[in-house]
Structure formats: structure tokens, C-alpha cells
Nucleic acid binder design. Structure first.
Lengths: 333, 333
DNA sequence: ATCGTTCGCGGAAACGTTTCCCAACCCGAT
DNA sequence: ATCGGGTTGGGAAACGTTTCCGCGAACGAT
């Protein structure tokens, strides 16, 4: 029922090639002819059929993003950065959500295929060797955000260093019993982030001559409630830690809540440091390790669009720095 | 370079129609033939080209969502509900983001068109009469979430009532000077939510015989910082309000921060109530008006998928209830 | 006038599916 | 044997673009 390019051509008294040229600015068209075509387009309220255009041109005009747990504050903030670049562009944006290991495998297999997307952003999931090879073979420009692969473009941080910074901060404040609450070190979806931050934690302890005590380590689901639960558990045993490093600000907020339940004062009875520096961290005086989430999204999207327009560039590996942000939850002021 | 349906057909020694039948289960195929086809598909690592499939079938296999300020906590939570339904379905999900009035108009014009999406979810933007008519004429099943239109499916709440509930709660606690901090009453993007909550606020005041004092009303941008600023302004004038109703939990958090800056104790010096009941509200003891954000998203997506599969159903208007949740920020316990 | 260039444009072919019209085959009933 | 109905499968046409080959007109130079 809607108008096609043939209708427009007929109405304007031109050939379909001319209409296409006008729409895509793909070849010179006489001023007067162009006007007539534009008029016909307006009168018929014509828009090219996306599927036909995609099939014919071989481009999808779509950027895809594979995102695990996209509602977590850090992912939302990165996504905001990505959208700030993609929305004003000519590309549609398709979200592929991951919540389970099965979905992860499925999306990494199915999404990077001809005709699906023109460019792909992957959050937080380092692809396996064979997944990375598939992606390369698909020739779809891809950028990893918050994950590293030697074969692909990526923007990431040094999580070992971040964990180290956080823990060292606590050490320097005089704490001797320091715990770590995080996501599982071995994650079914293939996040290595928790493991890396844990390594940094271990390294800082070691450097300070402090023993690692497994009683001060808990792993669990990534949520505020889980953080609260883990913290309660760890703080109610004999000889509890005096400081906790939480894998993320979200978990740290759970810790703060647990401390409140237990009547512990922050930071005197318990010092807490998180990771990410989400908006609310500042508001609630949570010490944390800052990574520039929004900017990372912007940079990733820009890098991607650039590669979509200019294929064949060498891959780039960008490591961004992390920064300790000390607030009330550790330093008293 | 990738295999096409013809390659598969040749390899399996069948016609293309048969391959298509196997893929789509669209007509009976002999057991042995089917096996051969499936084998060929596996060997060639074949996937149908999406654009070709879309063009030929006239379906896009895509659900779209138009979402203003999709990173706001309430939108994220609704979106999580939507994705929990759409992700496991056979549909891709495309996000159309809105941040300005121009984008709003553009998306509402351009998205509901043949070939763009099979179904559309619109968050928080009540379409104008002519926009709604366009949507209907496009024949694309559409569900409004957090907005009302007599012509379209929608899932919404009574914001006047919500504002009334919040304000009445404050009145019943004995407050006489009650302020309202919210988004602009006249919004360029066409939100009526703030206006409605404001009406509820006025109604509750009136009912209690309290005068409306414009000095106790501020409108501003929707952010934590803005809430903090507005609250500081309103609380530092002579005769400041003893209770504030904030348009959203986000703004309410800003109010709490301002109160902390000013050394006001909550709820004794200042009672605060928000709106939405986002996750953090419980954690921080913020009184609020609950609307079931996640469930709304689920319900909207289910309603939409249902209508995509079974067109021609009469439109549904679902009004969900709001509920007062009293916590520490108003009631002391 | 004539020729060579440039400009402007028409429309066939191609993109890779789904759909649907038929044909071929099989089997049991007559 | 013949016929009718059911089952199975082949492949042309259609979906609506973009691309590109090639033709005619216009124009400048000689």
C-alpha cells in the first residue's frame, strides 16, 4: 500500500535510477529534476523500504551491541555514551541482551554474520580465540568495551591495577584485615573482571606483608542484596575485617546497608571502597575506583563508526586509566 | 561469500523451496529429505540473509522501542521488563532514543512505517492526535507504556492520584508547608506526568484547606543535581517548607543530599517523599509512591507480541495502581 | 557544420529470500 | 489397468531497492 520508488518515479516523470540518485546523492541530478523528485516524495510520503535497501546495497544501516546485564549501572552508563554517538548517526541500534552462558554463546555465534549488523560493540565479554576468529572472518567491524582481545579493537582498563589501588588505599589507612566481596572469580559468562580485581587485591596485601585470609573473601551474585548478604556474613564472624573492597559500587552500597544493620559506623568501624564511580557514589560519599564509563562508550562508538566507514584499519587497543577517589566511606572526610 | 539458500539446495540435492520449508517449517517435508537439508545447512554454516527474508516475507522480525532518556532509573527498569520478554523471543530489539523535542517528532514520524518494525513500544510520550492516527494507519501494533492515548493500547498509571497520595501522606503527618519539586509542567517533549502529579498535589492541599504557595514550587531538569539545587533554593528562603514531594526518586535523592548539606535532619526537620520506588529507595529509606516498573515492561511487551501474532484485536487500556510506601524519610521509622 | 566531451538520466539486472502454482509420485480402491 | 486423493518437492515470480551500462542531448572547440 505505501508508495514505492516506482510510484515516485512515475509521478515525477523520471526513471527509478534518478529517484535513487536523489535519495542517496549518489550521482549528479539536474536541479529542476531533483526538485520534481523531492516534490513527488513529499506528496506520496515516501520512505525507501529498509529491507529492500539493505538487500540491494548489502549494508544493514544497523549497529549492534551485545551487552550482558545491561541494566547494571555501569553498563547503562557505557550504553548512554554509545547512544550519544549512534543515535544522531544514520544507523539504527539493536540491543542483544545476555543473561546466561547459553545466551552468551548464542549471541556471539549468531550476531556477527553477514547481513545482521554493519558494526558490533561487545561489552564485557572477552571472546574466546575461536569466537574472535569468527568475528574477524565475518569482516564486521567490532569493538570490545571493558574486555580485551589481542585480535580485536578494544577499550579496557587494567582491573588488576584497579584492585590494587583500592586495596592499597585501605592498607595505607592502616587496615590489616581487609576483605574482598565480588562476583565469582570463575564466571560462566566468561567475565575475568572479578578475577583480575581479586589479583590486584592479593598483590596489594602481599606487598604490605598481610596474609590472605579466605574467611575475608566472598563471591556471589552481582546485586545490592547479595552485597548486603555477603557483608553481613563476613562481618558477623569472629575477628571480622575492618575494611572491605567491593567489586562494584552496587555491591558496596549493599555493604553500607549491612553496616547500618549491624550498627557499624562508617568509616570508623568499617571502611568501604567500591569500583566504577557511578553517579550515586559521589552522593553517598562512597570511596571508589573511577573508570570513565560514559566516555568509554563514546570512544567505542566513535571508533566503530569510523571503522565502518573506513574498513581495513589496523586494530587498536586502548587502555584507559583508573583513579582512586577517596570519600567519606574510607577517609572520614 | 557466505552460503545462500541455493548452495544449500544444491548440496542437499533438493530445490530451494524445500530448503525454505525446512527452515520455516512451512510445509511438510519427508523425514529423510529434511535430514539431508539440515546436514547441508550445518556443513555450510548457513543462515538465511535477514534482509532477503524481510523483503520477501514482509516482516521485519524486529520490535522497536522509542524511549526518552532511557538511562533514567525508571526507564531502565521498564526496559528490563521489556527485554525479559523480547530477548527470548524470535524478535530483534531496536532502541530509538529521544533526548530532544526534535528527536521526539522525528522518531514518532519515522519509526511507525512499513518495513521498519513489526511492533512498537513507546515509553512516556503520549502521541498527538495526528501522530496516533498515523500509527494506526501504519497498521503496526503499538503499545504505549507510561502514557495514555484513547486510540492506542496503553499501560499507564493515574499520576494525579499518585501525586495526591504522596501529598496526602505528608498532610496526614501534620505538615502544613509542603513543596513540590518536579520536571517542568509544560514539557517540550510532551510529558504530562509532572503536570498530573502537580495536580494531585494541588488537590490534596486544597482538600486539607492548605493554600498553594508558589514559593514552594520549583521546576527544573530531571536529575539528582537539579533536585539538590531546587531543594537548596526552596529550603533557604524564609518560612521554608517542612515537607517536600519530589517528582521522582532521583530528584528526591537530590533533596536528601541538600538536606544533609543544610544540616536538616530527616524526617524531623524535613520530610521527603519521592515517586517510582526504584531499588535504591528501599535501601535509603526513601518514602515513595510505588509503580510496578518491571512488571509494566513485561506486560507491555507481552501485549505487543500477542498483537503482532494476532492482529486486529481491540485496543486495551490498562491502568495500574500506585501505592504509598512509607519509609524513614517521612515517618521516622 | 563536425567532432569529442561532459552531463543527465532510463531501466535491466541483481540482491536472497518466501510463496505458491504445478507436477510427479505413491497407494488404495474400483 | 485405471482413477482419485494425498503427499512431496521443484522452481518461477515477487518483494523494492541499488548499481551500472549505455544512450541522447548539450556544449565547446575547431
Amino acid at each position: 500500500m505505501p508508495a514505492t520508488i516506482h510510484d515516485v518515479a512515475k509521478r515525477a516523470g523520471v526513471g527509478i535510477g534518478t529517484v535513487s540518485s536523489v535519495i542517496n546523492d549518489s550521482r549528479a541530478v539536474n536541479r529542476a529534476t531533483r526538485e520534481r523528485v523531492l516534490k513527488a516524495i513529499a506528496e506520496l510520503d515516501y520512505t525507501p523500504h529498509p529491507a529492500a535497501r539493505r538487500l540491494s546495497s548489502g549494508k544493514t544501516f544497523t549497529i549492534g551491541a551485545i551487552i550482558p546485564f545491561f541494566t547494571r549501572p555501569a553498563a547503562v552508563e557505557r550504553l548512554r555514551g554509545v547512544m550519544s554517538v549512534v543515535a544522531p548517526s544514520a544507523y539504527d541500534f539493536t540491543l542483544f541482551s545476555i543473561e546466561t552462558a547459553a545466551q552468551r554463546a548464542e549471541q556471539l555465534r549468531a550476531v556477527p554474520r553477514r547481513g545482521r549488523v554493519d558494526g558490533l560493540i561487545i561489552f564485557s565479554c572477552p571472546p574466546t580465540q575461536s569466537e574472535a576468529e569468527r568475528i574477524i572472518k565475518s569482516e564486521i567491524p567490532t569493538v570490545l568495551i571493558d574486555a580485551y582481545s589481542p585480535l580485536l579493537n578494544c577499550i579496557y582498563i587494567d582491573n588488576v591495577k584497579g584492585g590494587y589501588q583500592a586495596t592499597k588505599h585501605l592498607v595505607e589507612l592502616g587496615h590489616r584485615r581487609i576483605g574482598y566481596l565480588g562476583d565469582p572469580l570463575e564466571d560462566p559468562i566468561g567475565f575475568f573482571v572479578s578475577r583480575d580485581r581479586f589479583r590486584g587485591y592479593r598483590r596489594a596485601l602481599e606487598e604490605a606483608g598481610l596474609p590472605f585470609d579466605p574467611r575475608y573473601h566472598r563471591e556471589g551474585e552481582h546485586s545490592l542484596e547479595s552485597g548486603r548478604r555477603m557483608a553481613t556474613e563476613i562481618l558477623t564472624q569472629p575477628d571480622p575485617p575492618t575494611a572491605l573492597f567491593a567489586f562494584s559500587d552496587t555491591i558496596a552500597f549493599g555493604v553500607l546497608e549491612a553496616a547500618k544493620d549491624l550498627g557499624l559506623s562508617i568509616p570508623d568501624d568499617l571502611a568501604v571502597i567500591g569500583f566504577d564511580d557511578v553517579q550515586l557514589a559521589r552522593l553517598y560519599g562512597l570511596s571508589t575506583i573511577r573508570q570513565q564509563l560514559f566516555q568509554t562508550g563514546v570512544m567505542g562508538a566513535e571508533m566503530l563508526l569510523n571503522r565502518v566507514s573506513n574498513p581495513g584499519q589496523e586494530e587498536m587497543h586502548v587502555q584507559l586509566s583508573t583513579k582512586l577517589v577517596a570519600r567519606r566511606s574510607t577517609s572520614g572526610e
